[in-house]
């Protein structure tokens, strides 16, 4: 496990370079927004965080399907990695959003659909992690959390589409046509940076899960169920 080169560290390096360059351009090179002023620069971290948080939870959804279908440990490890990363990013997303809201809308929080569905997303997936922590049997932990993730995932498309479906304080998605070209560049660079950073988090957390499971199985053989022996 140790000493061997692990490919994800190259991805981390790339992520850090992209995030540094993107943030530098966003804070020092890109123009301020004509009505919003400098505070608009929060967009270069907020929008990539939102995209990659939803992407991580989508990976969790796919991994949960794989885990229930096959029962393989690898899928369950991917479930933990992507759920935990998605929850961390959603937590940061809400914090950045509150800071941006206070400066542009004038309030820290408002119960509009986008904010509410995003908070629900955070609570549901954090709940999945709490559920995992409370189940001892690895087999049951994997199935229960996979089921919970699939049901919780119903909220993710709502987070994305709610601003189009219903009146809200939060604006609808911007497109390259509604965003100045000078602002699109740092946004794109940071989005790829965040994507690679999340990849590193997911892979590291998944490897940790597999290693933990291996230790559990070698040190506590009496806790292995018949089922696990069959699948080992």
């Amino acid at each position: 496990m140790r000493g061997k080169f692990q490919w994800e560290h190259a991805v981390l390096l790339l992520a850090l370079v992209l995030l540094t360059v993107g943030t530098y351009i966003g804070l020092a090179v890109a123009p301020p927004e004509r009505h919003m002023g400098d505070v608009q620069r929060i967009m270069y971290v907020h929008v990539p965080t939102a995209w990659i948080a939803m992407l991580s939870l989508t990976v969790a959804f796919v991994a949960a399907i794989g885990s229930l279908w096959s029962g393989k440990h690898k899928w369950d490890a991917a479930v933990v990695g992507s759920t935990e990363t998605g929850v961390v990013l959603t937590g940061l997303l809400l914090s950045q959003g509150m800071i941006w809201a206070r400066a542009t809308w004038g309030v820290w929080w408002d119960w509009d659909v986008r904010l509410t569905t995003s908070l629900v997303m955070f609570i549901l997936f954090a709940g999945v992690l709490a559920l995992r922590a409370s189940v001892d049997s690895a087999e049951r932990r994997a199935s229960w959390s996979a089921v919970a993730i699939i049901v919780a995932y119903a909220d993710v498309p709502l987070v994305y589409f709610c601003v189009r479906w219903w009146r809200s304080l939060h604006q609808v998605q911007s497109t390259p046509e509604t965003v100045d070209a000078a602002m699109m560049l740092p946004l794109r660079i940071n989005a790829f940076g965040m994507l690679f950073l999340a990849t590193w988090f997911i892979v590291r957390r998944a490897r940790l899960e597999l290693a933990q499971r291996q230790v559990e199985e070698t040190t506590l053989p009496e806790r292995r169920s018949v089922e696990e022996v069959q699948h080992a």
Partner: peptide
Amino acid sequence: MVKHNNEYQAPEEGEMV
């Protein structure tokens, strides 16, 4: 509460908030 639309534009000459 002030609403913002989905447009983000650079300021024009001499225009700064």
